[in-house]
Design a protein around this nucleic acid. Structure first.
Lengths: 119, 119
DNA sequence: CAGAATCCTACGGGATACTG
DNA sequence: CAGTATCCCGTAGGATTCTG
């Protein structure tokens, strides 16, 4: 089993974006189309494999899932663990930093529910 | 003075997007590049005019500001009030629905601050 | 003062096929 | 099983100019 700090190949610390508001920086991390879904699933079910996420987040595509997972990993929000087996096995789980996002995701979801309910 | 329910010309209620997560619906409302900034400014200072927002949110352009304001108004988050004077005067302020977003924006900003502080 | 009208481009996101 | 590798497209976002 191999646990790396960052196997995504993306260096988020090097990107020097200029944020005009703290919330922009936050949205930059969770703004991807499937990111909140991924984070919610991992918060709800703990460790999940690629295939499980693929099913639970249907109709997400493999490409998009992989891409969003990489970014979340690069931002230190999730941990990717590879089991050197055949066939391959990879699990994803929230890091402490990822868990700290619950304080943001919960209000966000609650507010979103009201929206969908209002129609 | 003219107060209209929706003078933006955008009908958000007609757009039938399919959200796979409540938070997606929420992000759809506040995800615009300058929206959180606008909402924060209005929450902090109350009524603000176009020019004031333009300055406080610099380097936002007039086009982007207008566009984001229209969408926020179409979503019922802000109220646009026109004073029929010469020269023209327009003020923007939060609606009740807009104020309800504070429960989302606050955690979002707090989390964002930690990010910017961590570097 | 507060915008409307154009034009343009980068990139987020998707469909499809291939691989260790 | 868990991904790459390509190709492709719509649109969010920006620069610039004009208007009541």
């Amino acid at each position: 089993m191999t646990r790396e700090n960052n196997s995504s190949g993306i260096d988020r610390t090097a990107s020097k974006k200029t944020y005009h508001n703290p919330s922009e920086a936050a949205l930059d991390r969770i703004g991807g189309k499937w990111k909140t879904g991924i984070l919610c699933m991992l918060a709800e079910h703990g460790e999940l494999r690629n295939g499980e996420l693929l099913r639970r987040l249907s109709p997400v595509t493999q490409k998009m899932l992989t891409q969003q997972l990489k970014e979340l990993e690069a931002d230190g929000l999730i941990l990717r663990t590879v089991f050197p087996e055949v066939p391959p096995k990879v699990v994803y789980e929230l890091t402490d930093k990822g868990w700290s996002l619950q304080s943001v995701l919960e209000p966000l979801c609650e507010w979103g529910k009201k929206l969908l309910h209002a129609d």
